[in-house]
């Protein structure tokens, strides 16, 4: 699904991402862990062609993301508020995303019904613009907007950090279901080792731009990560 070849990104002489080679197959759930500055978000941005790689390339379905726009059709991402259009109401935003993906209004409404629990009554018909929602609720809007696109590749940057405990668990359940049903390829970065090992099928541990560990999730993965992060 995704192939990374000799990817390097430097900011003013400092290497922030350096991934010689990485292959991610269809249906994998990749958990990206690492301390601040490890290069997780930068890697996500490179995947979305939001920043230019200094060296190397990322292929999505064999096509370079920097030269082809095909990936946009089947890729959805939520990294931060910069992915939301903050002067729209949540509904307007969903309809907008729906239209870009050829989903009718009725279709979107139908889809949103399945999110009633996830939204917990504080998103739809709230009478607020997205900019007036709390950060956690903005995140919910972002995630729902992603899933509305019915993507094959999904990128979420630290989804657990801003959600309340109930929603965190809901999200994990949702991701697992989607994975079982749709064989979606998912990238999740997180500082929450429990959640990320629970949900992922494969963990990439990043440090200063490098992937220093590539682990298939097993019972002892959590232990191994905790050992790494122990101070």
């Amino acid at each position: 699904m995704i192939q990374v070849n000799g990817l390097v990104k430097t900011y003013s002489g400092k290497t922030v991402v350096d991934i010689p080679s990485l292959q991610v197959g269809e249906g994998e759930i990749i958990g990206l862990v690492g301390n601040n500055g490890a290069g997780k978000t930068t890697f996500f941005r490179l995947l979305l062609d939001l920043i230019r790689a200094d060296k190397g390339e990322i292929l999505s379905k064999e096509k370079n993301v920097a030269t082809s726009e095909d990936w946009k059709r089947y890729t959805a991402a939520y990294l931060d508020e910069g992915f939301l259009i903050d002067y729209l109401t949540p509904e307007e935003y969903f309809y907008f995303v729906g239209r870009l993906n050829n989903r009718s209004k009725a279709d979107v409404d139908e889809f949103l019904k399945t999110f009633e629990g996830f939204f917990d009554g504080s998103i739809l018909k709230s009478g607020k613009y997205i900019r007036d929602l709390s950060k956690g609720n903005q995140f919910k809007v972002g995630i729902a907007g992603c899933l509305l696109q019915d993507p094959e590749v999904l990128l979420l940057d630290e989804p657990f950090a801003n959600l309340d405990p109930t929603t965190q668990l809901r999200l994990i359940k949702m991701i697992k279901e989607l994975h079982a049903r749709r064989r979606m390829t998912i990238f999740i970065s997180s500082h929450d080792l429990n959640h990320v090992t629970d949900v992922s099928t494969r963990i990439l541990l990043m440090e200063k731009g490098f992937i220093i560990k590539d682990l298939r999730s097993k019972e002892d993965t959590l232990q191994e990560l905790e050992d790494y992060f122990r101070v």
Partner: peptide, 14 residues
């Protein structure tokens, strides 16, 4: 500019 990242990552050709 506030949501240009999102615009460029969404299903929308330049």
């Amino acid at each position: 500019s506030g949501h240009f990242d999102g615009m460029m990552a969404s299903n929308l050709s330049v």
